[in-house]
Nucleic acid binder design. Sequence first.
DNA 1: ACTGTTCTGGATTGTCAAGTCCATTTATGA
DNA 2: TCATAAATGGACTTGACAATCCAGAACAGT
Lengths: 196, 196
Amino acid sequence: MTAVLTKKGEATRARIIQGSAATIREIGLANTGLDQIRARTGTSQSQLFHYFPEGKAELLLAVADYEATRILDDQRPLLDALTSWTAWEQWSERILETYEREGVHCGLSALTSQLGPNDPQVRAIIGRMYESWEAALAEGLRATQRAGEISPVVNPEIAAAALVVSIQGGIQLLAATGSARHLRAAVSTVIASLRT
Amino acid sequence: MTAVLTKKGEATRARIIQGSAATIREIGLANTGLDQIRARTGTSQSQLFHYFPEGKAELLLAVADYEATRILDDQRPLLDALTSWTAWEQWSERILETYEREGVHCGLSALTSQLGPNDPQVRAIIGRMYESWEAALAEGLRATQRAGEISPVVNPEIAAAALVVSIQGGIQLLAATGSARHLRAAVSTVIASLRT
DNA sequence: ACTGTTCTGGATTGTCAAGTCCATTTATGA
DNA sequence: TCATAAATGGACTTGACAATCCAGAACAGT
C-alpha cells in the first residue's frame, strides 16, 4: 500500500473488496482466485497487490470485515428499534426474505468455515459481529419487556443467542438443502417461545 | 479401482477415508491436500488413486458419506428411542457433550460450505443425512406425544427442523467463537418450547 | 508351486494460482 | 508547470498440487 489513497484509489480499493465479496458469495471461496477477482473488478495483479500488499490473506480479511458489517446493516434500521411485536415481526420477515431471496450463500459462513478456525483475525471479526448482533437483539428484547409485550421471565441473553443460532443454522441448511423450510421453522419456533 | 478388494485392500481404503476425515476436521478442507492425507495415513499416491480412481473428488465423496453416517451413529442408540423426557434429556446432553468436547469442527459443515453448493452429489448425501436425522427426531416427538409427555399441539416436523437447526447453528457458532454458549442456549430454548 | 490379480513405491508431468518486478500512465499539490 | 507520489498494465518466477505412469512386491485361488 502507499502512504495516502487518492479518491480514485479509494474507489478502486472498495471496488476490489465488494467485487471479491460478491464473487465469493456466488462461486464460493474455494473457487475464487485472484483471476476471478480481477475479471470481476476489472483490475490487474499490480492493483490487487498495490492495495493489499500482504496479498490474498489481507484482502480476505477486508472482505470479512465488509461482510460482517453488511450483515448487520442489512437489518437496519429495524435492528435498532425492536420495541414491539410489530417491530419483531417486521424484522424477522425481513431476515427471512433477505436470505430466501439472495441468501443461498451467507458470505461470512464461507469465510468462517475456511478461515475462521485457523485465522485468529477473522475469528475476531466474526466474534465481534455476533457480539453486537446479539447485543442489539438482547437490547430489543429488554425494551419489549419494558413495554410489557414480552414476559419478564424470558432471559434476553439466552433468547438473543437462540435467535442468532436459528438464523445462522437456518442459512446453513438453506445452503445445503436449497430450501428455507428449516430457517422458517427454527426462527418461528424461537419467536413463538417468546410469547410464553 | 480393481474388480475386488482383498481384506488388506478394504483396510487401507477405510484407513484413507477415516484419516482424510480426521485431517479435514483438524486443519480444514482448504488445507488438506493429498500430501497431508498421505502423511496421515501412511500411503502413497498410487494407493490413493488405486482406491479412488477418479481422484480427490471421489475420495471426498466417500469422506462425506462417512461423516454423514458418523453424525447419526454418534447419537445412537438414543436417537432411535426418544419416547420420554428422560430420553430427550439424555440425548440432548449427549449432543452437547460430544460437540463441546471434540466438536470444534463439524466435519460435514466444512465439506458442505465448500462442496455442498457446487457438487450435487455431496448435496445429496448431506440432504439425505438431514432427512433421516429429522425423521428420527420427528418420530421421537410423535412417540413422546403418544406417551402423553408432549402436548399434541406441537408440530413434530417443525420442532424436529428447529432442533436440527439449533444444533447445526450452535456448532457453527461454537467453531467461530470457541464457546458452546450459543449451542446450549439454542437447544435448550427449543426443547423448552416443547414443554408448552 | 504357479499364475493372474491386487497392492504398493516413487519418479514424473502438467496445470494453475500466488506473488514479484519493472515500466508506464495518471493524479496531486506547490 | 513541474516534481513527486500514487495508480496501473502486464510479463515473469515460483511453488504447490493433482494426476499419470511404470516397475516391482504381496497376495489369492488353484
